[in-house]
Amino acid sequence: ENVVSAPMPGKVLRVLVRVGDRVRVGQGLLVLEAMKMENEIPSPRDGVVKRILVKEGEIVDTGQPKIELG
């Protein structure tokens, strides 16, 4: 899985990584606000952040790609 998608609709509060960052499985990639709760979205695997496809403040839909890992 190279693309991390939104598990639920919500607002991107914070992006916790930058392009080029090495990430580990379970590491937080971003914080999504859904139903007035903050949810940290974890990396599904070890890898390197290739692209960030969302911006802080953006509203995302379920299944929308957010971060691409290499």
Rank of each mutant, 00 (worst) to 15 (best):
M35T: 07
V54T: 05
P65L: 09
R18P: 00
P9K: 13
P65Y: 08
P65K: 08
V31S: 03
E33N: 05
S5P: 07
E68H: 10
R51T: 09
E33T: 07
L30C: 06
V23G: 01
P65A: 12
G28M: 12
G26Q: 04
A6T: 06
Q64R: 07
I59K: 09
V54A: 05
V15D: 00
V60E: 03
I52W: 03
G57P: 01
V48E: 06
E56I: 13
P7S: 13
M37N: 09
V23L: 03
E58N: 05
D21T: 07
V31K: 02
V15H: 01
Q27K: 04
P7V: 11
Q64T: 11
I59W: 15
V23P: 00
V3T: 11
V19G: 01
K36D: 15
R45S: 10
V49S: 00
I52P: 01
G26P: 01
I67Q: 02
S43K: 01
G47D: 01
E56D: 08
I52K: 01
P9E: 07
E68K: 06
L69R: 02
R22G: 07
P42E: 08
K50C: 14
G70K: 12
P7M: 12
G57I: 05
E58R: 02
E33S: 09
E68Y: 13
E38S: 09
K11T: 09
G28A: 14
P7A: 12
L13C: 08
M37L: 11
M35G: 13
T62R: 14
E33M: 12
V23Y: 03
V15F: 09
K11E: 02
P42S: 11
K36W: 11
P9V: 09
M35D: 14
L30P: 00
V25E: 12
P7D: 10
S43D: 02
R18M: 10
K55P: 01
V25C: 12
I41P: 02
V3R: 06
G63Y: 08
R45E: 05
V17Q: 01
R51I: 07
G28W: 10
R45T: 10
V19A: 07
D46H: 08
E58I: 04
P44Q: 05
P7H: 11
E33P: 00
D21Y: 06
K66G: 15
K11N: 02
K50R: 12
P9S: 11
R22K: 12
M35K: 10
K50Y: 11
V3H: 09
I59F: 14
G10D: 00
V48Y: 14
V15G: 00
G63K: 07
G10I: 05
G70W: 15
K11P: 00
V23K: 02
P42I: 13
G63I: 04
L53I: 06
V19Y: 03
N2P: 07
N2F: 15
V4G: 04
L29T: 03
G10A: 07
P7Y: 10
G47R: 02
L30H: 00
K55Y: 12
I67L: 09
P44N: 05
V12P: 01
R24E: 09
V25H: 10
V12S: 00
T62Y: 12
G57E: 05
P65I: 11
M37H: 10
V49C: 05
M35C: 14
V54Y: 03
E68R: 06
V4I: 12
I67R: 02
V12G: 00
T62E: 12
L30D: 00
E40L: 15
G63R: 07
V15K: 02
V49F: 00
I59C: 13
R14F: 05
M35R: 11
N39M: 15
N2D: 12
L30F: 13
G70C: 15
I41H: 01
V31L: 08
E40T: 15
R51A: 12
T62S: 13
K55L: 10
P9L: 08
V19L: 08
V19H: 04
K55M: 11
G47Q: 02
S43W: 02
D21K: 03
P44M: 06
L29R: 01
E58F: 05
L29P: 01
V49E: 01
D21W: 09
V12E: 00
E38Y: 10
P65H: 09
R51F: 07
G63T: 05
I41G: 02
E68N: 04
K66W: 15
G70A: 14
G10N: 02
G10Y: 04
E40P: 07
E56M: 09
D46Q: 07
V49R: 01
L13S: 05
Q64E: 06
N39E: 10
V48F: 13
G10K: 02
Q27M: 09
R14T: 04
E58T: 07
E40K: 08
G63C: 09
I52N: 00
L30N: 00
P9F: 10
I67A: 02
M35E: 12
V3C: 13
V15Y: 05
V60F: 04
V17I: 07
P44E: 05
N2K: 09
G57A: 04
D61K: 15
K11I: 11
G20C: 13
E1H: 13
R18N: 11
P44G: 04
E33G: 09
E1M: 13
V25G: 07
A34K: 05
I52F: 03
K66Q: 15
D46A: 11
E58M: 10
E33L: 15
V60P: 02
R45Q: 10
D21V: 08
G63A: 08
M8Y: 15
K50P: 01
E38M: 11
R18A: 11
L32N: 00
A6N: 03
E33D: 07
D46I: 06
P44A: 04
N39D: 05
V54C: 07
K55C: 10
D61A: 14
A34Y: 15
P9N: 09
V60Y: 05
V4N: 03
L53V: 04
L30T: 03
G63P: 03
S5K: 13
V15Q: 00
P9Y: 11
R22A: 11
R45F: 13
V48C: 12
G47L: 03
Q27W: 05
D61E: 14
G28I: 15
V12A: 00
V54M: 02
G20T: 03
S5G: 08
G28H: 09
L16T: 02
M37R: 13
P44T: 07
V48M: 09
L32W: 08
V49M: 00
G70L: 13
G47E: 02
E56Y: 06
V31D: 00
M37D: 07
K36M: 14
V23A: 02
V19M: 06
Q64S: 08
E1D: 13
M35Y: 13
Q27I: 06
K66S: 15
P9D: 06
E38I: 12
A6R: 03
D61L: 13
G70P: 03
S43A: 11
R18T: 09
G26S: 05
P7K: 13
K11L: 09
G20F: 06
G26T: 03
V17P: 00
I41V: 09
K50W: 10
D46P: 07
V25I: 12
L53A: 03
P44R: 04
I59L: 13
P44K: 04
V54H: 02
Q64I: 07
V12I: 13
R51L: 08
G26M: 06
A34F: 15
V60G: 01
G57W: 05
G63H: 09
R45C: 13
P9G: 12
G63F: 08
D21A: 07
V12K: 01
L29D: 00
V3L: 13
N2Y: 15
E38K: 10
A34Q: 08
M35F: 14
